[in-house]
């Protein structure tokens, strides 16, 4: 792990510890919990996109498998949440390996379509296999998760739990990047042929990262199931996969912190917009919540037009420019 990343991680942990001391409202904590789920998935996706250079429009499917494995095993078979989460990770790894081997031979848009197709198939299966998944009616009464025999009942407890998992996810990701595998990955992103000639086993590397990023998604899905206690196919549609890629791209896919920023930003934006509506209406502006979608689209568009490397990179440049201004 590099010094700057360590510093960032420590800052994040401090922030996570401090936030519930300042914000005691379960609503805001709840929003931040959902944000944590997206962050976790996006960290994994960033390893795949930014470091291994492979796109996946199918990560929503891995989130779904993680969530459904947890939901089905705990409710139908009565497993403990941790065991079900572990099983979910194993199932997702196997599925990712099976899907990854033929899929990762594809390139560019073909890879995008193949992963997208995979995501739709999983979504259709979630809808159609009613006996297993509950179909569109979903699965009810998914239990809460416990740590050392203590059930996480309050939002604050779940907040700490989910962000601790995000911190661990970041730690693992940074270690991976700076390991031999990580260097191999970066070589792969630069030029596959060159990497291969230097003895990097491209196929094995790609599939390993694909599986790892799928596991991130699976854990995120599993935690979603234990938090909401109810799942149906709704949150795991194809558009969720597209949204995840958008988060990574908006934040900046060449840096884990970028993906992290993008996930935070796009998870909070809708809630921010819905709160802004109240204030605008209080001020007598005839703003309709229906316009949210326009504002959301416009913000996304402006970011991509003016911040080519994503928000995180843009922020960094702004900070550097600010420093230069001060020095003068």
């Amino acid at each position: 792990m590099q010094g700057r990343d360590t510093a960032g991680l420590i800052a994040l942990i401090l922030a996570v510890v401090a936030i519930p001391l300042v914000i005691r409202n379960d609503y805001y904590l709840g929003v931040l919990i959902f944000t944590a789920f997206n962050c976790l998935t996006c960290i994994g996706l960033c390893l795949l996109m930014g470091y291994a250079g492979q796109i996946s429009l199918g990560h929503g499917a891995f989130v779904a498998i993680g969530a459904y494995a947890s939901g089905i095993l705990t409710t139908t078979l009565g497993w403990s949440p941790w065991a079900a989460m572990g099983a979910g990770i194993i199932i997702v790894s196997v599925v990712a390996a099976i899907v990854g081997v033929p899929t990762l031979r594809l390139k560019g848009h073909y890879l995008a379509m193949a992963t997208l197709g995979f995501a739709s198939i999983i979504h259709i299966l979630a809808v159609a296999t009613v006996d297993l998944t509950g179909g569109p009616s979903g699965l009810l009464n998914i239990p809460r998760i416990s740590i050392f025999g203590h059930q996480l009942n309050s939002d604050m407890q779940y907040f700490y739990f989910s962000w601790a998992v995000v911190a661990i996810g970041l730690y693992v990701a940074f270690n991976l990047i700076n390991s031999r595998v990580g260097r191999g990955l970066r070589a792969l992103h630069g030029s596959e042929e060159a990497a291969a000639s230097l003895g990097v086993n491209i196929t094995a590397h790609k599939i390993q990262v694909f599986i790892l990023s799928a596991v991130y998604a699976a854990i995120s899905g599993s935690m979603y199931a234990y938090y909401v206690n109810y799942i149906d196919p709704g949150p795991f549609g194809v558009m969720h996969s597209v949204l995840l890629v958008t988060m990574v791209a908006v934040g900046g896919m060449h840096n884990i912190w970028g993906a992290f920023t993008g996930a935070v930003l796009l998870s909070l934006l809708p809630e921010f917009l819905s709160s802004a509506t109240d204030y605008l209406q209080l001020m007598g502006i005839a703003y309709q919540p229906d316009y949210d979608i326009l504002v959301y689209g416009a913000i996304l568009l402006l970011i991509m037009l003016f911040l080519p490397e994503g928000v995180f990179d843009g922020l960094g440049k702004a900070v550097r420019a600010g420093r230069r201004m001060i020095r003068r």
């Binding site: 379960d26 609503y27 709840g30 959902f34 109810y230 709704g234 809708p270 819905s274």
Partner: peptide, 18 residues
């Protein structure tokens, strides 16, 4: 507005209560 989505519904519900 839930936008018909579970996650938004959960957030909105908490917002109303809290």
């Amino acid at each position: 507005d839930t936008q018909g989505e579970n996650t938004r519904a959960v957030n909105a519900f908490k917002k109303l209560i809290k």
